[in-house]
Structure formats: structure tokens, C-alpha cells
Amino acid sequence: MNERKVGLRLGFYLLLAPLALWLTLLVLLPQIDMLMLSLRVKVGLRQYVTGPENYMEFFTEPLYWNTFLRTALMSVAATVATLIVAFPVAYYIAKVARGRSKGLLFVLCLIPFWVSELVRTFGWMILLRESGVVSNLLQWSGLSAGPVEMLYNDAAIMVGLVYASLLFMVVPLATTLDSLDDSLIEAGYDLGGNGYTVLRRVVVPHAMPGIVSGCIVVFMLTLGNYLTPTLLGGKHSLWFTEQIYNQFITRFNWEQGAAFGFLLLLLSSVMVWAGLKVSRQSLAGTLG
């Protein structure tokens, strides 16, 4: 009896070991190392002291927190835009499409994501650049006299971000909307509601967990995106991840880069928490 208990316990630890190793070696240790790094301040050649100066740098240098603010606001805007674009798509997939077309539409949403993000972003560049498809189309149709540059501005970044995030919004939305009983929508109309009332009072409250989880995922992905803002926004993109990259790679200031990384993690967590509070959702309820 006792031996069996010991055996069971050993089995449990053996099963747990890969996960524990993974978490400790690949997630926890590097994070701790980064944290230590971010708290190290260079005072001379190979001379370091521990202190919060790297973090203070973020708040004292306007460029840094302005960049962060811009990134955060653009990310919120991109999240809202993604929600607005994805909701009708998800509603159509979950409530209007029937049978095979339902699966087909889902796959259509999925297909672009079989290609790497880099390739997809290059696709947008081919469309939007001065010698690109849209520019040529405008010239050919006579709407524009000369070539039009549509890359390297905020709108281009926005388009790219929304496009890159769409799937992550459509999936949770379609899943929650799918679980909405059709008769609830019908009851909403039957009792005298118009389309807007039914949407506001029945559909959206039911889809709220999906909306919130979709928004969290999209917001975090957008905030931490490096490729899309850099390629589509060019040198004007001023994205916070770009600052981190610059610190690590261009300026070789790993300490500053690590501090920025932690600030990004911290500030985005605070924003998600605030978002959950405002929408009166819990993280557990959203994920469950």
C-alpha cells in the first residue's frame, strides 16, 4: 500500500518533470537573468552597480515614454478596429453560414496564416508601395496623376496590424457566438427589439467573454509586434519594440533594453487588468 503510494508520487513527478524543466530553464531563468540585467547600471568600463537608473531613464527621457504611449494608443486603436472588422465576420460564420460553408469560411480566415508573417507583410508592401499595385491602379484609372506612396505612415501600420490580428479575434468571437442560442435572438425580436437592441442587449453581452479574450490577445500581439510596424511604418513607425531592439542591437545597451522589456511587460499587464476591470470580466471567466 505504502509502496504503491510512493510509486504513484514518483510517477507524478516524472510526468511533471518536462513541464517543470521547460518552465524553469526556458522561461523563469532567462526572465530572472533579464531582471538582474535590467537592474545593473554601468558606471565605468566593466564596472556595474545595482540600481533603478535604467527604469528612471524611461520616465525622464520623453522620447521613450512618448514612443510607449504612441505604441499603446495605436495598439488600442488597432484592437478596436480589429474587433469592428472581425465581429461581422465571426457573426456570419457562427450564425448565418450553415453546414459546409461554415467550415469553408473558417478555413478561408485561416489560410493567410499558413504563410509566415514576414511574407504576408511583404505582400502588403507590394500592394501599397509607390510602384505597387494600388498606386498603378489609381494611375491607370486616372484618379491620380503620379505615383502614390501609401507605405510608411500610420494608416499603413494600422492596416497591417489589423490584418495580422484578424484571426485571433475571429476565432474566440465565432466560438462564443456559436454558443448563442438562435431562439434568444428570435426572442429579442419577438419581444419588440430592433436589430440594434438585440445586438446591444443580447448578442454583445453573450459574446463578451469572447470579445474580451480576443481583445487581450490582439492587444498583446499588437503591442509586442516588431515586424509589421517596422516594415510598413519605416523609420516613422516609432514602435516601442523597435526601441528595445535598438538598445540591444544598435546601441548594444543590454541593460537598457532589458529594462524596457520589463516595462513593456508591466505596463501592458496593467492595461489588460484595467481593461478587464472596465468591462467587468474576470481573466478566469474569459479564458474558461
Binding site: 431562439s183 426572442a187 425580436y189
Partner: peptide, 20 residues
């Protein structure tokens, strides 16, 4: 349309709004 008819329906599974 259904919302303009003075007719109401009790649905098979009642369709009470669980969010209210």
C-alpha cells in the same frame, strides 16, 4: 416584421435571456 406584430411567442426552450 416580428418586432412590429403584437404577437409574442414562448419558445420551446423558453429563450429567457441569461445575461439579464
Amino acid at each position: 416584421s416580428p418586432n412590429r406584430r403584437n404577437v409574442n411567442m414562448i419558445f420551446q426552450h423558453l429563450a429567457l435571456f441569461p445575461m439579464m
